[in-house]
Each structure stands twice: as structure tokens, then as C-alpha cells.
């Protein structure tokens, strides 16, 4: 399936009124992320959370950054899909301008992006921003 963009996600998630539907949506998103080639899952691409691991691959394509992500946990994968909707196929300047905290707040998912959460999501965001900064 084609992954929704960030506006569609905000709209979709606003539609659900209970946690079960919301998280079912995130789980389904997580499952729809194409799995990363195992050969790409090297240690230098690994962002280790204490509970789950995330791999990040990036490349520059005509001035926009393309990311591929994968996690061993499906909910984290779903949350990564939300992050990808915001960052993928954007210019470094667009990435650096994007307010990810506000976005997660709009999604009512800010608890997942807090530094205390051991899922590696915050670390992925930091790494994506560092890549964008280096390209700018």
C-alpha cells in the first residue's frame, strides 16, 4: 500500500475515538512499511533503543533526502511510518524546519517521542536531522 502523507495521517488519526482503533491503525501502518533488505541492517545503520532496534538508510536524490527504515517491533515501525511521512522525500531545509514535536502532539502521540521512551524513535529523529544538517 502507498504510505499516507503527514496531513492524511493527522486526519486519519483524528477520526478514531478509542485507543484500540488508533493503535490498530499504527500497527497496520507498521506492517505496510516494506521490510529492509537484511544486508542493509548493519551496525552503523542501527539505532538501538533499549527495547527495540531501528535501522535507518538514507540517500540524496536530486536534492531531496530518501529514507528507508525498519524496526523489529511493529508499533515502532508504525510510528516510524509517521516520521517518514514527515521527512521522506523532503529537502534538508524542509526537514530542519519541520516541528516533529508539534506533529506528534497533533497526533496525540507525544508520549512516544519523549526522550525517556526506549524505542529509539527520538534517536532516529536526531539522526535524520543530523543528516539533513550535513547536507544543507
Amino acid at each position: 500500500m502507498k504510505l499516507p502523507n503527514s496531513e492524511e495521517i493527522v486526519e486519519d488519526l483524528a477520526f478514531f475515538d478509542d485507543w484500540e482503533q488508533r493503535y490498530q491503525y499504527i500497527i497496520d501502518l507498521g506492517k505496510s512499511i516494506p521490510p529492509m533488505d537484511e544486508n542493509l541492517k548493519t551496525d552503523d545503520r542501527l539505532v538501538r533503543g533499549c527495547q527495540s532496534s531501528v535501522w535507518l538508510v538514507s540517500h540524496d536524490q536530486n536534492g531531496t533526502l530518501q529514507f528507508q527504515v525498519d524496526s523489529d517491533a511493529v508499533i515502532v515501525n508504525g510510528l516510524l511510518a509517521l516520521v517518514m511521512a514527515a521527512y521522506n522525500d523532503r529537502t534538508p531545509a524542509q526537514i530542519l524546519d519541520f516541528d516533529i514535536d508539534d506533529y506528534f502532539k497533533q497526533l496525540d502521540l507525544e508520549r512516544h517521542i519523549t526522550p525517556t521512551r526506549g524505542n529509539g524513535l527520538r534517536a532516529i529523529v536526531a539522526r535524520i536531522r543530523a543528516i539533513a544538517k550535513a547536507k544543507k
Binding site: 485507543w19 484500540e20 493503535y23 500497527i27 533499549c50 527495547q51 527495540s52 523489529d72 517491533a73 511493529v74 508499533i75 515502532v76 526506549g118 524505542n119
Partner: peptide, 22 residues
């Protein structure tokens, strides 16, 4: 078929506190 972190998360939403991880 499920990662323990996912299981722990869904339990948390139901008020059940467990630990997941290594």
C-alpha cells in the same frame, strides 16, 4: 510472531505494567 516491546505496549494501554526487553 510479536516483538516483546509491542506486547508490553498494548498491555500498558490496558493498565498492566510489565517489563519488556533484554
Amino acid at each position: 510472531g510479536s516483538h516483546p516491546a509491542d506486547v508490553g505496549f498494548i498491555l500498558d494501554r490496558q493498565g498492566i505494567a510489565i517489563r519488556t526487553g533484554d
